[in-house]
Amino acid sequence: MDIVKFQQELIDYSKTIGIDKIGFASASPFDELKSRLLRQQELGYQSGFEPKDIEKRTNPELLLPGAKSIIAIALAYPAKLKDAPRSTRSERRGMFARASWGEDYHHILRDRLQKLESFILEKLPDAKLQSMVDTGELSDRAVAERAGIGWSGKNCAIITPEFGSYVYLGEMITNIPFAPDTPIEDQCGSCRACLDACPTGALVQGGQLNAQRCVSFLTQTKDFLPDEFRTKIGNRLYGCDSCQTACPKNKGIDFHFHEEMEPHPEVVKPLLKPILSISNRDFKETYGALSGSWRGKKPIQRNAIIALAHFKDRSAIPELKQVLKEDPRPVLRGTAAWALGKIGDESAIDILKEASLKEKDEQVLDEIEKGLNMLGK
């Protein structure tokens, strides 16, 4: 088969199935990435969500014996919410980050990659293929950078000339020797807008992220949020877009190419108070299709409590009182106690004192004490 001709056929086909950008890279080891990952490990900058085996993360041959090249794909997602509901004093709202708008992107990219696989196998039945999205061993960003999809920005996101950094990434390792594309030259220059915009200083320097301080990571944890980060979360329920919205390359960027990615305004910018008592069934029905639901409702509920404290929403005191008195989960009871103190209403004093007499969990008792201290008691 004429591989050059087939490669062009594959590119043409990709456009017909909703792939916004496709690139090709060699499957040689990612030696520079390996060094960076080892350094991140030494510094304790990893989130803990990453695959553990650094060799497999940086050597495609270990994932697909005989690997010759990697196909990288990118799909642009929306950056602006149409008909966004307003947050009012008595009806405060939270936000899901843009990467959690619409249907879970893992499903969308897997669908596109499966179609590519079928196209390839129809022409080359003996081809070996291994596709992955986000949770696979390979670094989506390292592959996309090598394949000329975009450059790796100081915000640790791939920035494309066409769609900014608002793109989902996926890849396919193959034993077909496709011609590699040329990487795009870094265009960040001396700009440091993302570094300055990061709420927690998680961007240690251009291209280096301390995931343990990243708000996007913190919103996905299930334990008590460390005190220093509670005032940084704002009304974020899942994820953080600060380093993307600050990027000049994203100015004016907003693409609505894919129906599955279109967000439902009431779902991605929901009322906060109802989240505190939402049932498992209702959570699954309302948020289950979002990528932001993967950790379950507990982190979302904890973040909603922190958001109500951020707004100092006195109208939420009855709901917070109920969580403190009745929720079986210490993290939510304790966070509610802290939030009552943060809101600063005197009616919270009696609520917290009453709870302290019945509470048995030491961490929750510590949070009750924090709340009372903030109220001057």
Score class of each variant (00 low, 15 high):
K297C: 10
T200L: 01
C198T: 08
L195C: 07
I11P: 06
P270H: 12
L81Y: 02
K269R: 10
W101Y: 12
S356A: 14
K360F: 05
G94I: 01
L290T: 08
A193F: 06
L43E: 08
K325L: 04
F96A: 05
T219A: 03
L357D: 09
K360G: 09
K273N: 13
I253P: 15
H107F: 12
L203C: 11
D223M: 07
Y168S: 08
S139D: 14
L195K: 12
D126Y: 03
R236G: 02
K249G: 02
T135A: 09
E42M: 05
G66T: 08
L37V: 08
Q301W: 14
T286F: 01
T286G: 03
G296M: 06
T182Q: 05
D104T: 05
R39D: 02
L116G: 00
D104K: 00
G239F: 13
K232C: 00
C243H: 06
C214P: 13
T335Q: 06
I349V: 13
V268N: 04
L365F: 03
S190V: 04
A316D: 10
D104P: 10
A289P: 03
G48K: 11
I120G: 10
K80R: 10
Q130T: 06
E362I: 05
T58F: 11
I120E: 08
A76V: 01
K34T: 04
L63A: 07
D227S: 03
V215E: 10
A25M: 07
P328V: 15
C156A: 14
Y13K: 04
V323H: 12
S90R: 14
D282A: 14
L365R: 12
T16G: 00
A202R: 14
Q244E: 08
D361M: 06
G102V: 02
L237R: 12
D53T: 10
G94M: 01
G207R: 03
S152R: 13
E367N: 10
Q41H: 13
I176Y: 05
K269A: 13
G344F: 11
P65S: 15
Q208G: 04
L195Y: 06
E171T: 05
S90M: 12
P248I: 00
A157L: 15
G170P: 07
E145P: 11
L63F: 04
F224C: 07
F119Y: 14
D223C: 04
R112I: 02
C240N: 13
K273H: 12
A72S: 08
